[in-house]
Nucleic acid binder design. Structure first.
Length: 279
DNA sequence: AGCATTACCCGCACGC
DNA sequence: TGCGTGCGGGTAATGC
């Protein structure tokens, strides 16, 4: 479940907890289980396991699509890539038995309490880091699109310092951090922009429309707790709000034209050919 | 030369 | 049963 709104949903749940689970911050790591070595990006898996023992998790934050856990020393960082979840859960059953990892759990942090945090990653593309300096992982990441620092003027700068197809540009994490395939398609529909429009061809007015579309779509995604698709269900509802994504051949809600699907930058792209003219 | 774009890769589950 | 597809991103090759 991996674009900005989904990661934000996961982080909020981990940070604040709920009726079923306590917050993650405050917990101290007692032991670490790694069931798929390549899930550990840095350092090597054995060092990762050893170094984390005794570390206390101080907070749970998001940066782009990364989950960021500042520790009392150093930082634990995770990226889910194409699938997965981070769960806080009981590690011991009511009869005192230690619970085995769930299917596709790649890394498990056992806390000194009876809880654990599990990095679940079906497709094994996700990665975790332990680093002294979080910037070593986040270096080069683009601006947070929901931050006050992100402005329409700033977006205009980004668009006009490149001559690229608008869709891959919006998904470039080095420029804007957090947009993925779904939210970009939905954003471009709201802004009435064709995914192949060249970035530096956008007028100031089009840029402002795009700016507001980005913020509205991401905020709506967060409000709906993300989107749930196929077997990667997470309880989000944004999929019910899709205007174009996965609606190929269906009628545009605005004009009735059939939604089209094309490949842009190796990714499927859905748009209304009438509402989003290439010009 | 320096961008932008395309190709390929990485595990797995699912639908047709 | 087999094949195409995919809420991502890194690297390498190719194109302009």
């Amino acid at each position: 479940m991996p674009e900005l709104p989904e990661v934000e949903t996961i982080i909020q749940r981990l940070k604040h907890g709920n009726q079923d689970q306590p917050p993650v911050p405050g917990n101290i790591i007692q032991s670490v289980l790694v069931t798929w070595d390549r899930s550990i990006a840095e350092p090597d898996p054995r060092s990762f396991q050893r170094i984390l023992v005794g570390k206390q998790i101080m907070d749970a934050c998001r940066r782009g699509k990364y989950l960021h856990f500042p520790l009392d020393r150093g930082h634990l960082i995770a990226h889910l890539r194409m699938s997965g979840d981070m769960r806080m859960e009981k590690s011991i059953s009511s009869d005192g038995a230690h619970l085995p990892p769930a299917e596709h759990d790649r890394v498990i942090l056992n806390f000194t309490t009876s809880y654990r945090m599990a990095f679940n990653n079906i497709r094994k593309f996700g990665r975790m880091w332990y680093v002294e300096d979080a910037q070593s992982v986040f270096l080069g990441l683009g601006i947070e699109p929901l931050s006050d620092q992100f402005t329409a003027q700033g977006l205009f700068e980004i668009l006009h310092t490149h001559n690229r197809q608008i869709k891959p540009l919006l998904m470039d994490q080095k420029l804007i951090a957090g947009m993925g395939n779904i939210y970009t398609d939905e954003t471009l529909f709201r802004a009435r922009l064709h995914p192949l429009r060249k970035s530096d061809s956008l007028s100031l007015q089009e840029t402002e429309d795009l700016y507001h579309a980005i913020r509205e779509v991401l905020n709506e995604g967060i409000r709906q707790f993300g989107a749930s698709l196929d077997w990667v269900y997470r309880g989000g509802q944004f999929q019910n709000t899709f205007k174009v994504y996965q609606r190929e051949g269906e009628s545009c809600f605005e004009c009735g034209t059939a939604v089209e699907k094309i490949i842009v930058g190796q990714r499927s792209s859905h748009f209304c050919p009438n509402c989003q003219k290439r010009q």
